[in-house]
Design a protein around this nucleic acid. Structure first.
Lengths: 164, 164
DNA sequence: TAAGATTGAGTTCTCAATCTTT
DNA sequence: AAAGATTGAGAACTCAATCTTA
């Protein structure tokens, strides 16, 4: 368990809560960074140690919009164009997706799933849903909906802050 | 604005919400990744383009525990030992901290703020608090306390998941 | 000119391995 | 052996610059 180069669990997280300065413990940014770290650790442990979260998101998006261009799909999964180029290069090397130039506009690259990519998506998808279930365990349907709505609202507000 | 190598705002974030597949939009992990991206963008725009959030956390922690060893402080700010070594090396190069070997245990390195580090901490701290204020704008004190508590609870639960 | 994709540089982040010290 | 710090490799992420195509 724990493939080299794939983000895994850090022992530092286990003790972090105790000795952190109070100002940090109440700061939204610090909390969100910890939350994201914890999520990645849970993903590696319970879903997959080779396919990353962002790569899974690309699989889902390509499956939902087969043949769409790389730039549009990047926006759909909240990845920068540069990051998307890097992620897609790795996924193509692993045989998860095809990238074919658009005959109508040679600047674009169109993405499609390979048979391998489709199979990986199916397998990982069930574990990813199980993880979502675990992440929300202990919350009744109302609380879950409220939490998801809160996170979405916060994201949109914070995105606005980041761009004025 | 926007120093090279410092995480800034990605245009992809502005459109992400619209075309994302529904499964992703309701997935906690996807939401938290977007939230963290939005936070970093807001930090770069409203707080500082050269000092990063993790580096600021180190300044705060060293100020709270002067002369503590690097490993303990790493845990306090939720950084891996390796990450901490890297971050501290850059901060020492920029003249923000001293790193002196512990005479009682030569394996340890003890951290202290330089005068420059203390001044940067003071300046950045006010803007960081202003950012926290903006991030929580529109929420009354009860809602703020509830949000912070929810994020803390989620972090601890998700950390447990990542380590079983 | 402008848009899409890529590369280059730099930061964060993780794990495994190494090196020094206890 | 074990603990603290570091290095190496690799993924994600951002911006600026470049290159190709429209």
């Amino acid at each position: 368990v724990g493939i080299k180069g794939v983000r895994g669990a850090s022992r530092a997280l286990l003790e972090a809560a105790s000795n952190a300065p109070p100002e940090l413990l109440a700061a939204p940014g610090f909390l969100v960074r910890r939350l994201y770290q914890a999520y990645v650790a849970a993903w590696v442990r319970l879903v997959d140690g080779t396919l990353t979260g962002p790569q899974f998101a690309v699989l889902v998006a390509v499956d939902a919009h087969p043949g769409a261009d790389q730039g549009s799909l990047a926006a759909a999964v909240a990845l920068d164009r540069s990051t998307m180029a890097d992620v897609c290069r790795r996924m193509e090397e692993r045989g998860l997706i095809f990238r074919t130039p658009d005959v109508a506009d040679a600047r674009r690259k169109l993405l499609d799933l390979t048979a391998e990519g489709r199979q990986v998506l199916t397998e990982v998808n069930s574990r990813a849903r199980a993880l979502d279930e675990e992440l929300l365990a202990g919350l009744d349907p109302d609380d879950r909906a409220r939490l998801v709505a809160d996170l979405q609202t916060l994201s949109e507000r914070w995105v606005q802050l980041g761009f004025e």
